[in-house]
């Protein structure tokens, strides 16, 4: 940026402001990180240490001991928390919903961008209009319908609805409008390529950036989802529980008397999303800036 005014007092005041703003940003960053840091520290401390000293910022050496206690609780049936089962269950739901969401949203967006048909505008307006309907509004009817069909305690009602994700369709359509050359579809047709093959072999690879951003968001959102699984998995069978549901059971149990192990349980539950975040943080932040997430 050219320094337009360029006078000495101006550049000095910029320096002072830069310093102040940097200080505020450092403080806010510390606030953002602190609870997570304290969680990690507490997961490495033992019960006696936590209950006698309160908050501490210095890690200790009891992490594996705490995880062992946790495993023991699981074996004895004291808690419905079992990190490995939780990881597996959450992963099954998160991976399948992510794939369904991006592929079918990409397909729907491709359909309204590439083809001309009578109800094209009506269909897209409908998708925009339903984007804002909150899940809570339909959940009574959804739950009652699913229990009538005998689909509670089943993963299908958690996975299949991912095929229809209006906000993802919106994002993909915006992306295609701005950077998908329709001539390429025409060229593929001349070469005798079928419509579905064109979508899968040309369309999807060309929409890769949009797919990647939406896949990351869909994965994190589904991994973190507490509302839907806790609604559908009403019998709370331990081998079906997702990780967020398991974390909840760690609290509502007064037979447990080991804070260290309880903190370790919470820490284990956030490791996957934290890892995903640190790998993809740049695309996530860019994705948010592009309106990649709904709320």
């Amino acid at each position: 940026m050219p320094d337009i005014a360029g006078t000495k007092s101006n550049s000095q005041s910029i320096k002072i402001r830069t310093g102040l703003v940097t200080a505020v940003m450092v403080i806010l960053s510390i606030i953002a990180l602190l609870p997570i840091y304290v969680l990690i520290v507490n997961a490495t401390r033992n019960h006696v240490d936590i209950t006698s000293n309160g908050v501490s910022f210095i890690p200790n050496l009891h992490l594996f001991e705490n995880i062992k206690t946790l495993n023991q609780w699981t074996e004895e049936g004291k808690v419905a928390y079992d990190a490995w089962t939780g990881y597996a269950n959450s992963a099954i739901i998160a991976f399948s919903t992510t794939i369904l969401t991006v592929v079918f949203s990409g397909m729907t967006a491709y359909g309204v961008v590439v083809y001309d048909f009578k109800f094209k505008n009506a269909a897209y307006t409908f998708i925009l209009a339903v984007m804002m309907i909150p899940v809570q509004v339909t959940s009574v009817g959804f739950y009652q319908f699913m229990s009538k069909l005998g689909l509670t305690d089943n993963y299908l009602p958690l996975i299949l609805p991912a095929i229809a994700a209006p906000s993802v369709v919106f994002f993909m359509r915006q992306y295609m409008k701005s950077s998908f050359p329709l001539e390429i579809v025409e060229a593929a047709r001349i070469d005798g390529c079928g419509e579905y093959r064109t979508f899968f072999t040309i369309g999807i690879p060309m929409m890769k950036p949009a797919f990647a951003v939406q896949a990351i968001f869909a994965f994190v959102a589904n991994w973190n989802n507490f509302y839907m699984p806790s609604m559908i998995l009403i019998s709370r069978k331990q081998n079906q529980l997702t990780l967020p549901m398991m974390v909840n059971t760690i609290l509502s149990n007064d037979k447990l008397a080991d804070y260290g192990a309880q903190y370790a349980a919470i820490m284990l539950s956030i490791i996957p999303v934290v890892v995903v975040y640190f790998i993809f943080s740049r695309s996530i932040v860019e994705g948010v800036a592009l309106g990649g997430v709904k709320e």
């Binding site: 359909g111 269909a123 009817g141």
Partner: peptide, 25 residues
Amino acid sequence: KYGYLFILPFFLVYIFFQIYPLFNT
């Protein structure tokens, strides 16, 4: 017709899992 076929899965699933439950509500 391909336009309809491409958007069909979205609408079938949306009607089954969202629109019907909305009316059910």
